[in-house]
Computed example of a mutant assay.
Amino acid sequence: MSKKVVLVTGGGRGIGREICMAFASENTHIALTYTRDAQSAEQVKQTLTARHISCSVHPLNVQNFSLCQSVVDAVEREYGTINVLVNNAGITLSKQFVNCDETENEAVLSTNLQGVMNMTLATVPSLKKSTKNAELGRIVNISSNTSLCGNAGQVAYSVTKAGVNGFTRVCARTLAQYDIVVNAVAPGYIDTDMTHDLPESTYSHVLKVSAMKRTGRVEDVSAIVQLLCDDHCQYMTGQVIHIDGGKFC
């Protein structure tokens, strides 16, 4: 049986790192990208290599389509056609909209939404080739609970994640003819470096409105991503799965 090739953007830290670790228990080659933290990305590679899992690390700014295409080409040369794409790379901005400048909003929009579109467009030709071997191609986009609730002080972030949801549904309809399924997971407040930067008031609000009265773990997200890519999960596409402990906005 040939190994699955899994490409995870933003795979060096937080949720992305845990997604890489989840797939490492399978028969996989893993390629991950990072933007700034090369050391963390290399640590993920070292951990996987110690488990005898082949892993490659690629610096990438997902805002640039040509760079996305270059990474896809490099992964194909090393491992073959890509079976799974996880669009995880993203940044946040905790600031009232009226106080944001154009540059700050542009960075969030270009990374979180255009970046997902760039990586998907670059990877689809490879996914289409993999489906010729009677396998489903998989795309999982990492969205956010803010796409539904719209957190105050996170306008650009919430807008991009709502866009990711819409993009997921359109791609699911468009790519089904090629046996490529597309879904999104929308985490709530997950304990990562990114959420550590949020105000204490946001954390208190989460505990107040969450049915489970606690934050989530990165493993809660990676488990669902892995499920969506399982060979037995073949009839779910175009869905946005909220992983938020019952956070009702």
Results as ranks from 00 to 15, higher is better:
65 F>Q: 15
89 A>H: 11
48 L>W: 04
85 L>R: 10
60 L>Y: 08
40 S>W: 02
53 I>K: 03
32 L>T: 11
67 L>M: 12
59 P>Y: 06
43 Q>F: 02
111 T>C: 08
106 E>S: 12
61 N>D: 15
96 Q>Y: 12
77 R>V: 03
50 A>Q: 11
63 Q>L: 01
116 V>R: 04
108 V>M: 05
42 E>Q: 15
81 T>Y: 03
36 R>C: 10
68 C>L: 03
47 T>G: 03
116 V>Y: 05
62 V>M: 03
96 Q>A: 08
121 L>N: 14
60 L>C: 13
121 L>G: 04
34 Y>T: 09
104 E>K: 06
58 H>D: 05
121 L>E: 07
116 V>Q: 01
59 P>G: 07
47 T>D: 14
22 A>S: 15
41 A>E: 01
92 T>D: 14
102 E>K: 03
32 L>W: 09
55 C>D: 00
78 E>T: 13
91 I>C: 12
61 N>S: 14
97 F>C: 10
78 E>P: 00
31 A>L: 01
36 R>P: 00
40 S>M: 05
54 S>K: 12
32 L>C: 11
37 D>R: 07
95 K>S: 11
108 V>R: 11
34 Y>W: 08
103 T>C: 00
79 Y>Q: 10
26 E>V: 05
89 A>W: 01
46 Q>M: 04
66 S>H: 12
114 Q>A: 01
88 N>Y: 08
48 L>G: 07
102 E>R: 00
107 A>Y: 03
114 Q>W: 13
29 H>D: 07
31 A>K: 06
84 V>I: 15
58 H>E: 04
62 V>Q: 15
89 A>R: 04
28 T>I: 02
99 N>W: 09
30 I>G: 12
69 Q>G: 15
41 A>H: 09
37 D>A: 05
101 D>A: 07
90 G>K: 07
59 P>S: 06
70 S>D: 13
82 I>F: 03
50 A>L: 07
68 C>S: 15
101 D>W: 08
38 A>Y: 01
79 Y>K: 02
120 T>D: 08
66 S>I: 10
46 Q>P: 03
77 R>N: 15
64 N>L: 10
83 N>E: 14
28 T>P: 06
114 Q>P: 04
96 Q>T: 12
85 L>G: 05
48 L>I: 10
117 M>V: 10
